[in-house]
Computed example of a mutant assay.
Amino acid sequence: MHLKLSSLVTIALSLFYVTSCHAEEENWIELFNGKDTSGWRNPYDWGNAEVVDGEIHLTADKKFFLLTEEDFGDFVFEGEVKLPQGEANSGFMFRCHVEPNNVYGYQAEVDGSDRNWSGGLYDEGRRQWIWPSQSGRTTDKEFLKYEQESHDFFARPEIAAAFDRDGWNRYRITCQGDSIKIEVNDVVTTDIHDDLDKRGPIGIQHHGEKGQTYSFRNLRIRELE
């Protein structure tokens, strides 16, 4: 009797797991159809976005962001980015704020420099670096300790090696309440709590280097209850 009950419980749990995984997979919303930029908008008077071979290519002479027309609050977002050669920097905006010719708020960093801060959390147009932290001028010992810990974190070999400078990189951003987690190629690079913003569009960035093309693909989102 106990063996039969145990078997039934195991089967039930297995079915629940399979059903849950299937439901999660069905709940993904494709933000990019691979053909055009439907569902996206450019709030700037400059910058160009075109679709080439199933990728969004951004070109510009000044920094700009291409944004989703829809806002999102609690979600899991996934997207892939490839940086151009040479000096380059980009990011995925989320829960951000939009004005004419201006976008600010949370950004998952895409860092093309030797600093290796890809996957960090940057507050575009406001507080700047949140993780890793940059304090500027301060004598607060606790803050300086936090700053050092954050820099030591990004110096770890597994974190520094998470980002592929010359290839495609998959980002996953999970926001639920004040919890923010960023993963780069399945490596957790940011896992903090910050409650400044709760809802806004998703954005992709061109950093403004003339002649450079930034590429994005496989952009999708799953909203969380």
Rank of each mutant, 00 (worst) to 15 (best):
E99Q: 04
S14C: 03
A88Y: 08
N48T: 13
R137D: 06
F72S: 00
E26W: 11
T139L: 03
A49C: 08
L67S: 03
L219C: 08
D114P: 09
I182A: 03
V51Y: 03
H206N: 05
K4A: 12
R126L: 15
W131E: 08
G177N: 15
T68F: 05
H193I: 01
L15A: 04
S179P: 07
S133E: 08
F75P: 06
N89D: 15
T19L: 13
G125W: 08
S113V: 08
N169A: 07
G125C: 02
L144P: 11
T190L: 06
N48S: 11
E147T: 10
K145C: 02
F143A: 10
R126Q: 15
S38M: 09
H206S: 15
V187N: 05
Y44C: 14
K210G: 06
I173V: 14
E183W: 13
V51W: 10
T59A: 04
E225K: 04
K181L: 15
G47R: 02
W46C: 00
W168R: 05
V110P: 02
K82M: 11
F154V: 07
Q148Y: 15
A162G: 03
R172I: 14
V76L: 11
N218S: 14
G203L: 13
W46V: 07
F64A: 04
G200H: 06
F153E: 13
T68Q: 00
R127E: 12
W117M: 13
E24A: 10
S133P: 01
T139A: 05
T174P: 02
E80G: 07
S20P: 00
Q85G: 11
G105V: 08
I202M: 01
Q212P: 03
Q128D: 10
W131H: 11
Q148I: 13
F94H: 01
D164P: 03
A60S: 13
G39R: 09
R41W: 02
D186E: 15
I180D: 14
R95V: 01
A88W: 02
E30T: 11
L224Y: 02
F16G: 14
R170P: 08
S20I: 13
V98P: 06
K35G: 11
Y171P: 00
D74G: 06
K141V: 09
A49M: 04
N102D: 04
A49T: 03
R220W: 07
R126K: 09
K210C: 02
N48D: 13
H22T: 15
K145Y: 03
F64C: 00
Y214F: 13
Q205G: 01
L144H: 10
G167L: 08
L196K: 09
G119W: 13
G120P: 08
D186I: 00
P132V: 06
W40E: 13
H57W: 12
E124M: 00
S90F: 10
R127N: 14
E87V: 03
N102P: 01
N33A: 09
S113P: 10
C21S: 11
E87Q: 01
